[in-house]
Amino acid sequence: MEVLVILVPLALMLGLVGLAAFLWSLKNGQYDDLEGAGWRAIAEDEPVREKQIL
């Protein structure tokens, strides 16, 4: 059962990483346009990146 001392903090750390990722994505504006984000996933190409290549 001593393994719990490693496993439990490890599980919590992983959870915290997930939370940090969520908070980062929120701050980064990734939840501002949920409807558009859904469509972008299946759009043919990324127009903004296309511009950078030009």
Binding site: D32, D33, L34, E35, G36, W39, P47, V48
Partner: peptide, 9 residues
């Protein structure tokens, strides 16, 4: 430099 549509708003 940036043109981004927000479909929700």
């Amino acid at each position: 430099t940036l043109a981004r549509v927000n479909l929700t708003d």
